[in-house]
Design a protein around this nucleic acid. Structure first.
Lengths: 255, 255
DNA sequence: GACCTAGATTTGTCCGGACATTTGATCCCT
DNA sequence: AGGGATCAAATGTCCGGACAAATCTAGGTC
C-alpha cells in the first residue's frame, strides 16, 4: 500500500475501502466473519493500528460487528441510508382533531439568534415572522398545544387567515402565494412545560411536554415555514399506524 | 488514573467523562479551544493514544471539532440527541442505531391489571411475558433507552435470542414462530423519567422522556407483541422526512 | 453425556515513538 | 504595507509492542 503520493488516501482508508468493496460485492457475506486483525496485518502489510482504524470505519458505517474473543462479523451488505417512510398524506400527518381551533395570540418579527438558529436549523441572523398560537378543542376545557410558527417575512399576509379557513398554515401559503411544499421534516422529542408556557397551556411548569418541530421546504430546497409545538404530555399522543400491503394514495413518500 | 479494578471504566473513558463533565458544566465553553493533546498527556499522565481515544468519544458525541494545525474546539455544551431516528421502511422505523446493544435485564410473567391493560390497550387480566431491557450505544456513555417488551406467553422461547441475532423482537417471532406482522401501531408521547428508571437510565428522576409504545399485530388482528420504550429527552429525537414525488419501495404504508 | 480446565484465538486497551500534514504567527525584505 | 519564508504548534497517520479481557474449543475426568 503506497499512500504519501499527492491526493492519495491514507492507508487505513484504502484498506477500509477495499473491505467495504468486498462486503458490497458479496465476497464477504452477511453473517460471515472477517479475517482476524493479525491476519489482515499479514495480508495487507500494515500495522495492527492501521487495520483497527480501517475496521473502525466499517464499524461506524454499521457494516460490521466487532466483539472481543469472537471476531469481526459482517452484518450488513450496505450501510443504511437515512431516509423516511411514506405516509398517506402530509395533511393527515399534520391533522389535529376536527373540532380544534387555532387562535393566534401574537406575532412579531424576530432575528434568529444563535440559539434560535440552532433550534430552527436556519442561518444565524436570518429574519422570520414568529406567530404564536394556542390550539383548543371545543370539547375540552384545557388547551391542546402551543405553537410558534416561523414564516419567511414575505408571507406575513397569511397571518390574518390563520385558523380561519380550516387550512394549515403551509396550505394557506400554497393557496395565497403559490409556494409549493416539496418536503416536510418532522422531529419529535421530549420537552418540559416552561414557566413561560405554563400559564397559556394551563399546565404545571416542569411537567412533560411533547415537542414537535416541523420544517416545510419549497421547491428551491429552502424552508419557508417552521413550526415548534409544545403538547402537554397528558393531552397529546402522536400515533402512526402502519399496515403491510397498502399503497399510499398520495405522491408523498420517502426520497 | 486507576482502571483495572473490577467494573472500572477504561482510562480513555474516564478521561472522556472528565472532559464531558467540564464541557457540560461550562468550565470548558463553546468556542474555546481544549488543551492540546500533549498538554492533556502531561496533565492526566496517560499516553497520547489514550487522549486521542477519549477525544474521539467527544467527537462522536458532537461536542468538539478537531482540526489539524488548529486544535480541538468545543462546539456544543451538550451532545445532540444520541440518535435521530429517520427511516425508510417500517423495519427501519423500528431499528435502532447500528452500534447499539439491547441487553435483557429481567423477564417475568405478568397479568395485565387495569392500569397496564389501558397502557397496552389489551384486555384486563390477560397474561403477558414482560421482558425488560436496556439499550446502550457503544459510542455513548449513557444508556439510550429502557424497553419493556410484552409478549404473548407462547413466544417465551425467543427471549434468550433477544439482542443476539441482530434482529428485532418481532423479527425473532416471525423467524422462530412463523408469526406474521400485518400491522404496527406506533404512539409517541411525552413522559418523565420515573424513580424506578432513573438509576438504569442514568438520568435524573423527573427529567423529560420520550415514550414510544409499539403494538405489533398479526394476521388475526390481535397484538402479539407490545413494547414500551423510555428515552431520556436529551438522548433521542424522532424524525420523519417526507418528500413529494418518490414512491416508497416497501409495501408498508399508513392506512 | 456432563462438567471442568487449559489453551488458543480474537478484540480491547494502553504505551511509546516517529513522521506527515495543516494552520497560524512571526520576521525579514522589498 | 505587502509578500514570502520560516518556524512552532497542533492534529493526523503509521509503526511496533505488550498485556487484559472475552470467547470458544479441545481434551480429560467422572
Amino acid at each position: 500500500m503506497t499512500p504519501g503520493s499527492h491526493g492519495q488516501q491514507p492507508r487505513y482508508r484504502q484498506l477500509a475501502d477495499a473491505l467495504i468493496g468486498d462486503i458490497n460485492r458479496g465476497r464477504l457475506k452477511v453473517g460471515e466473519t472477517l479475517p482476524g486483525e493479525l491476519e489482515l496485518v499479514g495480508r495487507f502489510k500494515v500495522s495492527r493500528h492501521t487495520v483497527r482504524e480501517a475496521l473502525r470505519v466499517l464499524d461506524d458505517l454499521g457494516l460490521i460487528d466487532r466483539q472481543q474473543g469472537i471476531g469481526t462479523v459482517v452484518r450488513a451488505r450496505q450501510s443504511s441510508p437515512a431516509y423516511v417512510q411514506s405516509v398517506r398524506t402530509p395533511s393527515e400527518l399534520m391533522r389535529y382533531p376536527a373540532d380544534s381551533r387555532l387562535v393566534v395570540v401574537s406575532s412579531a418579527k424576530v432575528k434568529a439568534n444563535r440559539t434560535l438558529a440552532r433550534l430552527l436549523d436556519v442561518r444565524t441572523g436570518s429574519e422570520w415572522l414568529k406567530v404564536s398560537a394556542l390550539r383548543r378543542l371545543k370539547s375540552a376545557p384545557l388547551p391542546l398545544n402551543w405553537t410558534d410558527v416561523y414564516l419567511l417575512p414575505e408571507f406575513a399576509d397569511v397571518v390574518p387567515q390563520i385558523g380561519k379557513r380550516g387550512l394549515l398554515v403551509y396550505q394557506l401559503i400554497e393557496s395565497i402565494h403559490g409556494e409549493h411544499v416539496d418536503r416536510i421534516q418532522v422531529q419529535l422529542r421530549a420537552g418540559l412545560v416552561t414557566a413561560e408556557l405554563a400559564g397559556p397551556l394551563e399546565s404545571p411548569e416542569g411537567s412533560p411536554s411533547l415537542t414537535i418541530v416541523r420544517h416545510y421546504f419549497g421547491r428551491g430546497g429552502r424552508p419557508f415555514e417552521i413550526s415548534v409545538s409544545e403538547h402537554p404530555g397528558d393531552r397529546y399522543m402522536y400515533a402512526l399506524d402502519l399496515q403491510r400491503g397498502w399503497q399510499s394514495s398520495d405522491t408523498w413518500s420517502t426520497r
